[in-house]
Simulated assay, not measured.
Amino acid sequence: MAHTTERPVREREDASIGELLSAVTSDAQKLFRQEIELAKAEVREEATKAGKAAGMYGGAGFAGYMTALFASLAIVFALANVMDWGWAALIVTAVWAVAALVLYMMGRSRMREVSPKPERTVQTLKEDAEWARHPTR
């Protein structure tokens, strides 16, 4: 069985200050690496949300353009049989503007759910700092 030089601090009654400092530094480095990994995971999660919301914005723009171009023409031609061309075009434009507004509002709602700050990491860092100030609590 391999012999390790790392023992819990409680077992190191005869440990030197250098050994204790080394152990504390090692633990702090491990904690820092774990916090970095947590922050990365949170940022990835929020970036995914932002990507989906941005896709909805893009979808709203594309849908608005395509519907304004093709459906509007077809409906304007159909309405022009019963009213003036100008009124027919205005009615069709208003309908597609409402559709674009609904898609925009949905995208904006999703974008508001995105948090740029890694909340869990901030909380654990605060807890770690509190523990470092008062390790016996």
Rank of each mutant, 00 (worst) to 15 (best):
T5D: 15
T5G: 13
T5S: 09
E6N: 07
V9N: 04
R10A: 00
R10L: 00
E11K: 02
E11I: 02
E13D: 08
E13G: 13
A15L: 01
A15F: 01
A15N: 05
S16D: 08
S22N: 13
S22A: 15
A23M: 09
V24E: 05
T25Y: 05
T25K: 08
S26V: 02
S26H: 08
A28M: 08
K30A: 07
F32I: 02
F32S: 09
F32R: 14
R33V: 05
Q34Y: 06
E35F: 10
E37V: 00
E37S: 03
E37G: 01
E37L: 00
L38N: 03
A39V: 15
A41Q: 11
A41D: 13
V43S: 07
E45W: 06
E46M: 15
T48Q: 05
T48P: 00
T48S: 08
K49I: 04
A50R: 15
G51K: 15
K52M: 05
K52L: 02
A53P: 07
A53Q: 09
A54I: 14
G55F: 09
M56T: 00
G59V: 04
F62T: 09
A63K: 12
G64A: 08
G64H: 10
Y65A: 13
M66Y: 12
M66V: 15
A68G: 14
F70M: 09
A71I: 02
L73R: 12
A74E: 09
A74Q: 11
F77S: 10
F77W: 11
F77T: 12
F77Q: 09
F77L: 14
A78N: 07
A80F: 06
N81A: 06
V82M: 06
D84Q: 12
W85F: 09
G86H: 08
G86Q: 15
W87N: 15
W87A: 15
A88G: 04
A89H: 14
I91S: 02
I91A: 09
V92H: 09
T93M: 13
T93V: 10
T93K: 14
T93P: 00
A94N: 02
A94H: 01
V95K: 07
V95D: 05
W96V: 05
A97N: 13
A100N: 00
L101P: 04
V102T: 13
L103I: 03
Y104D: 04
M105G: 09
M106T: 03
G107Y: 00
G107L: 00
R108T: 02
R108Y: 04
S109M: 06
S109F: 05
R110L: 14
R110E: 13
R110K: 15
M111E: 04
M111D: 05
R112Y: 10
R112F: 03
V114T: 03
K117F: 15
K117I: 14
P118A: 08
R120D: 11
T121G: 00
T121K: 01
V122G: 06
Q123S: 07
Q123W: 11
L125F: 13
E127N: 15
E130S: 11
A132E: 01
R133G: 12
R133E: 07
R133D: 07
H134P: 04
T136N: 12
T136Q: 11
R137P: 09
